[in-house]
Structure formats: C-alpha cells, structure tokens
C-alpha cells in the first residue's frame, strides 16, 4: 500500500505569533519555523504502517516556497521514502492546496492519504476533507486510531461526545488528531541519509489548477487584551471576590 503524507511548514508551536504593525498579517521574519505538529503525527503513522508491513512506500508532499524543502527533509529523515515539493511563493487557500494535492493523488495513486487535521497557523481544518471530496474518497477525520485490513481502514475519531469509529473503503483520506501516536525524533544518521533521498520539485502553476484567491484578507488585528488581574492571598479572599466583585458565583 502506497501512503501519501501532505505536510506543511508553519510557525513553531512554542512561538507566539505577532501581528504586523501595518495589520497586513502576522510577522514571520526571523521567526522559528517547523513542521506542523499534526503533520508530524501523520508522518509517524505512515512510517508505523510501513514498519508493520502494511505500507510499502511513504511519500511526503508539501506546497510552498523553497524553504519548505527543509520540512520535506525532516519527513525523509523520519522515514519517508521520497518527497515531492510543489513550489509556489503564493499564499494558497485550503481549496487550492486540496486541488494541487488531488493532482498528486492522480499521479501517485496512493491507497491512503494521511495528513494533519489542522495547521496551527491558519487553523482552518479543511484540507483533508476537501481532498477527500475532490478525489471521491471517504474520510476519517480527527483520527486517534487506525486499523487497516482487507481493503478497509477503520478509523477511530475524536469527536465532541467521545470516540466514533468508522470503516472506510480504501482508497481513503485520514486526518490525524493528537492522540494517534507520539512522533519519534530523527536520528543523526537518518538525517544524513535523508539528504540523498529523492526530492522532486514541481512548479505549482504547471499542474493546471486555478489558484485565483477566493478569500481576500482585509486586515489582521491583535485580539482584545485581557486587563491584568490580581493575586489573591487565600481561598477565602478568592471566594469573596468571586461573589462580591466578579459576581460570578
């Protein structure tokens, strides 16, 4: 079984994003960038499927500027067999990304596409579902467990009320939630080896996808700041203030 893992380069999850002074966006100059945490989980799961003998080949793909090849090298160091970089300097929307990925799905014909449920920058939570729709596949979103057997994949999903398990016909699309696995770290020898693994570069505009924006970014602002609070001395004072000052109990 061939597995495709779409990944994204994003702001490091420990870094607090700052809004640009001109409100045109978030300032990413000299900010530490990393692999989106949900994408790490997706790569890990694909590699575990390969280690279990279920997957035969793991292909990582990303869409973005040249710098995102760094994250593809990380994926290769973690165990992906080859990487595809769809190069563009444009800021793309989920629908564009899903359409470009659909072209790669057409080309590579993976039985399973596994990707993060959400990127921690745009917080959209859309790409996997859109890709499933565009490729006519079933979707198992927010996965905390996957089980492949006999042309079917059972996906246990983290839903608001607990856990739901669905059975999808392969080929299918799965998006990862936090509890699916704990990603490994790349070892130094594997990082060295990754430099020699194949990385194919494709220009985004060569794939015949209309990348005209559907959403206009009007402005980006800081959220409302909370005014500073106070440190109370003990439980009695806390309860008293909640009753008399905040009036919430």
């Amino acid at each position: 079984m061939k597995v495709l893992v779409p990944i994204k380069r994003v702001i490091d999850y420990n870094v607090k994003a700052r809004v640009k002074a001109d409100n045109s966006g978030v300032d990413l100059t000299n900010v530490k960038m990393a692999l989106n945490p949900f994408c790490e989980i997706a790569i890990e799961e694909a590699i575990r499927l390969k280690e279990a003998g279920t997957a035969t080949e793991v292909i990582a793909v990303t869409i973005g500027a040249k710098a995102s090849q760094e994250q593809l090298r990380t994926a290769l160091a973690l165990g992906a067999d080859k990487a595809i970089h769809i190069e563009t300097d444009e800021k793309l929307e989920s629908l564009h990304v899903a359409k470009l990925l659909a072209k790669i799905v057409e080309q590579e014909v993976p039985e399973l596409v596994i990707l993060g449920k959400q990127s921690i920058d745009s917080d959209n939570n859309q790409t996997g579902q859109m890709l499933a729709a565009l490729t006519g596949r079933g979707q198992g979103t927010f996965a905390s467990k996957v089980d492949v057997a006999n042309g079917t994949i059972n996906v246990t999903r983290e839903v608001d009320g607990g856990l739901q398990t669905v059975a999808l016909k392969l080929p299918a699309v799965v998006t990862t939630d936090l509890r699916l696995n704990e990603p490994r770290y790349a070892s130094l020898p594997n990082i060295m080896k990754a430099k020699r693994k194949p990385l194919e570069v494709i220009a985004a505009d060569s794939l015949g996808v209309d990348l005209t924006p559907r959403i206009q970014l009007v402005t980006v602002n800081e959220p409302a700041k909370r005014s500073g609070g106070i440190i109370v001395n003990d439980v009695a004072q806390l309860v008293d203030l909640l009753k008399t000052q905040a009036k919430v109990i």
Partner: peptide
C-alpha cells in the same frame, strides 16, 4: 488565526 493570537478579517469572493 495562530491560536487566537491574531484576528483576521476576511472577505469571501
């Protein structure tokens, strides 16, 4: 966006 550290105003086209 960005875990609520920024609020984007967006217009659907």
């Amino acid at each position: 966006i960005y875990a609520g550290n920024a609020i984007a105003t967006v217009k659907s086209l």
